[in-house]
Design a protein around this nucleic acid. Sequence first.
DNA 1: CAAAATTATATTGTGCGCAAACTAATTGCG
DNA 2: CGCAATTAGTTTGCGCACAATATAATTTTG
Lengths: 149, 149
Amino acid sequence: MLSLDKHLCFAIYSASHAFSRAYKPLLSRLELTYPQYLVLLTLWEDDRQPVKSLGARLHLDSGTLSPLLKRLEKQKLVSRSRDEDDERKVIVALTEKGKALQSEAEKFVAPAIYSATGCTAEEAGELRDELIRLRQSLENAADDSNAAA
Amino acid sequence: MLSLDKHLCFAIYSASHAFSRAYKPLLSRLELTYPQYLVLLTLWEDDRQPVKSLGARLHLDSGTLSPLLKRLEKQKLVSRSRDEDDERKVIVALTEKGKALQSEAEKFVAPAIYSATGCTAEEAGELRDELIRLRQSLENAADDSNAAA
DNA sequence: CAAAATTATATTGTGCGCAAACTAATTGCG
DNA sequence: CGCAATTAGTTTGCGCACAATATAATTTTG
């Protein structure tokens, strides 16, 4: 009989929500939600991406991203335009306002979160890598059982 | 300039969603969502709890739990009744059908998930404990900054 | 080259997760 | 006792996540 607190899945689930709650007051100053912040992180790293590619980086589908990106567009943080070479693709690009937010985030958001974790950079890095391996395992298992079906 | 994949928060966020996706096909046979499964785990451990106490265990508020519990009640998995000694409290209790699901879950759900993680029990336990410590840190930091304000 | 299959995105419907506002019961304090 | 403050739970509104469906553009293939 496994108790709730013994479950790895619940530890991840509740830590994930705790992170999101920790980000909330920091991001509300920038009028961003946490998923919106993740999209901007992705674009700060690689500007001008199609929705598909954002989804691949973030492990999210277009059903989630389409409305989120429209909200970012309404706030004038990104632009959305069809790719001229392939009209199926929508290219998402940072506006000047969207680019300007990066330094704000690096000054006020990232350090506050880093300190809230109470982890050293090494601890955080190891934990992160184990979680990435775990995510890979879970995704592979899902792929395998799909392939079997 | 931190890339998305260097962020601990994103590793947790994406691993959490990967877990939920891994559970989905297993839980759909029981007509449960993953948060509903967590509520049942809590009740299998301690039956007959007020909403408040479920929320404390699950780190969820009543705005999330109220509608979820109503859906579980509609499926006849739990009952909801006012505490006779304190009419503010709603006691959530397993029905026979809700109790019966436990052995199903232990036979079919838990082993499949365990194998999908690709972790040994030791690895999973260590990772879980580190995540619980992290969650604690994030919650303490939030409390501290609330206390300061 | 035209029909079929694939690809990229958007839309709809359901269920969280949470803040804010609300109702009702209980407790505390004069 | 009586009224203010607190507590427990529900409701409403918004923004994810995701399955399923729809639409339009591109590629494949016969």
